[in-house]
């Protein structure tokens, strides 16, 4: 039990995908203007990440490794991820057109979100079991969503601030997220 918790905490906080590993920065910068769409993006990414971790693990362990096709790994993983994203996109378009509109290009771009592929590959590299892969995917997604939410909240505040013209928009967003990364450094070396 404590091992599960530890893995979750360490992937979500200590080795946060966004702030410590710098993966998946594109949606973090792109879809963090409002907390609501950030939450939607977080959910979508969580869904894709968890599903992709499981699918890629099965693919790797049941198909690629038995057949000795390790060199096809990246290709196959991208194929799987793209399909999952495509499915998610269709689902969101159907169920929540508003969210679909506000996520815009960033929704299909989950495909190229390096966090997703990164987590799938790291799972293979660390030879996790299926359950652990799922946990690892979920923990990463949790960390991603957490940072996205916090960052979106901060950006909503900053949007109301009197930011000097030279820093308005992306520059101040980068400074904000760098300060957030600085704060997350407090978790470094955390072990129970």
């Amino acid at each position: 039990m404590s091992e599960i918790l530890l893995l979750l905490l360490s992937t979500a906080l200590v080795n946060n995908v966004v702030l410590i590993k710098f993966l998946g920065l594109c949606p973090v910068m792109g879809v963090s203007k409002s907390v609501d769409s950030a939450f939607g993006m977080g959910l979508a990414t969580t869904f894709v990440l968890v599903l992709a971790s499981a699918a890629s693990w099965m693919l790797d362990n049941w198909l690629l490794q038995p057949l000795g096709l390790g060199y096809l790994r990246i290709l196959c993983f991208i194929l799987v991820i793209a399909s999952v994203v495509q499915f998610t996109e269709m689902f969101i378009k159907k169920s929540s057109p508003g969210l679909y509109q506000s996520l815009g290009i960033y929704l299909p771009l989950i495909t190229t979100n390096c966090a997703v592929l990164g987590v799938a590959l790291l799972n293979v590299q660390q030879q996790y079991s299926l359950f652990k892969s799922l946990l690892y995917g979920f923990g990463s997604a949790l960390g991603f969503t957490l940072v996205l939410l916090i960052f979106a909240g901060l950006r909503e505040r900053v949007a109301l601030a009197r930011v000097p013209a030279a820093f308005a928009g992306a520059p101040v967003a980068f400074i904000t997220i760098s300060l957030l990364a600085l704060a997350f450094m407090g978790f470094s070396g955390l072990n129970v």
């Binding site: 693919l59 198909l63 690629l64 057949l67 000795g68 096809l72 194929l79 399909s83």
Partner: peptide, 14 residues
């Protein structure tokens, strides 16, 4: 052949 087949199969299923 295995590689071609498995990729084709994967693509077809998805």
């Amino acid at each position: 052949l295995a590689a071609v087949l498995s990729l084709t199969l994967l693509g077809a299923v998805l």
